[in-house]
Computed example of a mutant assay.
Amino acid sequence: TRRLASLYEALVPYFSAADDPAPLYAHGGAWEKAFPGYEFDDSGRVCHLLIRYPAYFTDGEPESRARIEHLLTAKAGRGREYLFTWDEEANELTVTALAPLPTGVPAQRFVTAPGETVLGFTDPSEVQRTLPLAYGAEQRDVPPVVWRTGPRSTEPHLLALGQPGSGTSTLLRSIALQALQHGDVVIVDGGGTGEYACLVGRDGVLAVECGLSGALASLEWAATETERRLIAVNRARQAGQAPPDDTRRPLWLLLDRPTSFTHLAAADGRKDPQALLQVPLRHGRAVNVTVVVAEQFDSADALGEALRQHTRARVVLGPATAEQLKAVLG
Rank of each mutant, 00 (worst) to 15 (best):
E295F: 04
E195T: 11
L101I: 13
L277V: 13
A215S: 14
T96D: 07
L253V: 12
V46C: 04
G60L: 12
P102G: 10
Y56N: 05
G79Y: 10
S260V: 14
A242P: 13
H263R: 15
V127G: 03
R235M: 11
C210A: 13
E209W: 02
F57L: 08
A300G: 02
Q296N: 14
S43Q: 00
L277S: 04
P156V: 05
R235G: 03
R312V: 05
T85F: 12
Q296E: 14
R312L: 09
E227I: 13
E209M: 06
R285T: 03
R270F: 12
E138R: 11
D20L: 11
A322Y: 08
P124I: 07
P164Y: 11
G211T: 07
Q181W: 14
A18S: 15
L212P: 01
L303F: 09
A197N: 14
Y135K: 11
V200F: 07
A302N: 11
Q108H: 04
E209N: 02
A97L: 07
R45I: 08
P62W: 09
L49Q: 01
R285V: 05
L329Q: 05
Q296I: 10
T112W: 13
L7Q: 01
D123G: 08
Y56D: 06
P21E: 07
T290F: 01
Q324R: 05
H263V: 15
A236R: 07
R52Y: 03
G150R: 03
P244K: 12
A197R: 15
D203S: 14
L161G: 01
V145C: 15
H283Y: 06
R65K: 14
G60W: 15
E89P: 01
G60C: 09
F110R: 08
G29Q: 09
E88G: 07
V111D: 15
L93V: 08
R152C: 06
R65D: 00
G214W: 02
G211W: 03
G167N: 02
N234M: 11
Q278H: 15
L133F: 08
P164T: 11
T85K: 13
T224L: 14
P243V: 12
T170D: 08
L206G: 02
L281I: 01
G136Q: 12
E69V: 12
S16Y: 05
E9N: 10
A267V: 09
Q128N: 07
Q296P: 03
P244L: 12
P143W: 09
G191I: 08
P102R: 07
V328P: 03
A313H: 01
G120T: 14
R45E: 12
G240T: 08
H263W: 12
R249C: 05
V188G: 00
G29K: 08
P23R: 06
V46F: 02
A215G: 07
L7F: 05
P151I: 06
A242D: 15
E225T: 14
G204R: 00
P100H: 04
A26D: 00
A74E: 06
H48Y: 15
V186D: 00
W221G: 03
S169V: 07
E32C: 12
Y196N: 03
A320K: 06
E305G: 13
P54I: 03
V292H: 02
G167A: 05
N288L: 04
G77D: 06
F121V: 04
D189S: 03
I187E: 02
F15E: 01
R65L: 13
Q178K: 11
G201A: 07
C198A: 15
A242C: 13
